[in-house]
């Protein structure tokens, strides 16, 4: 296994009486594409928020490149939330400047190359773009960083199949090869071909962590088939 990039030990998060994450422990190496897969409400977003320092655990620990989430990890983790997180009054150019100002690993030329390929004018305000194009702009910004860990929360949910293909190809073609990518989704068939490893999560517990090739060879199933079996009602 490659060098450990992310490590969780007994990670627990509760919202009042509800346990969103229940003593989960696992580690992730670098240079991998990992699918964090689970139905809605399984704890995927809570885990990602803990990883990005937007939430604090009630118990256990989480380490990214040996550091607890904080200023240090925010500089090496590129995070794409599952909502429109950019001020829509900003122009594409302004938001690129914003990323350039705050992230040392941001590659401006890469971002502009992708915008130009998509035909997105850098002078337009984000509010004038379609939903699909807003999603693409957000993804381009994240993938224009040379981060150590990319965390993409539901990047292909709620977009048309063509946009979905664009998003997947952007992820594959632009991530730093030494980095790892965690993709949280429940749309498995669309991303299955790009994954190296999967983590199944349900009711705040890790059900399975396996290499995709292992699943295919040992179980003789695709990840999508296995997911449907595991999460069958």
């Amino acid at each position: 296994m490659s060098e450990v990039l992310l490590e969780c030990r007994d990670l627990t998060k509760k919202y009042g009486g509800l346990t969103a994450l229940d003593h989960i422990s696992f580690s992730v190496g670098s240079g991998k594409m990992i699918g964090l897969l689970g139905p809605n409400g399984s704890g995927k977003t809570t885990f990602i928020k803990l990883l990005t320092g937007l939430l604090q655990p009630d118990d256990g620990s989480i380490l990214v490149d040996g550091m607890a989430p904080g200023v240090g990890t925010k500089g090496i983790v590129a995070y794409l939330p599952d909502n429109h997180f950019i001020n829509s009054y900003m122009t594409v150019e302004q938001i690129v400047d914003y990323f350039k100002d705050f992230y040392q690993d941001f590659k401006e030329e890469r971002a502009y190359r992708m915008f130009s390929e998509l035909g997105i004018d850098k002078t337009v305000q984000l509010k004038t773009l379609s939903k699909g194009n807003k999603e693409k702009v957000a993804l381009i910004l994240i993938m224009s960083r040379d981060a150590k860990l990319y965390v993409l929360d539901e990047p292909i949910a709620g977009v048309d199949p063509a946009t979905r293909d664009y998003i997947i190809s952007t992820i594959i073609n632009n991530y730093n090869p030494e980095a790892s990518v965690i993709i949280s989704t429940h749309l498995i068939s669309d991303i299955e071909q790009v994954l190296d490893e999967v983590i199944f999560i349900q009711n705040g517990k890790i059900l399975l962590q396996k290499e995709v090739d292992e699943i295919r060879n040992e179980e003789g199933k695709s990840v999508d088939q296995l997911f449907r079996e595991v999460f069958r009602w």
Binding site: L54, G72, K74, V77, P81, N83, H84, F85, N87, Y103
Partner: peptide
Amino acid sequence: ANEGYLTLSLPVT
């Protein structure tokens, strides 16, 4: 609000 996801993900205290 939504912008907080970006603001609070910046490497800033």
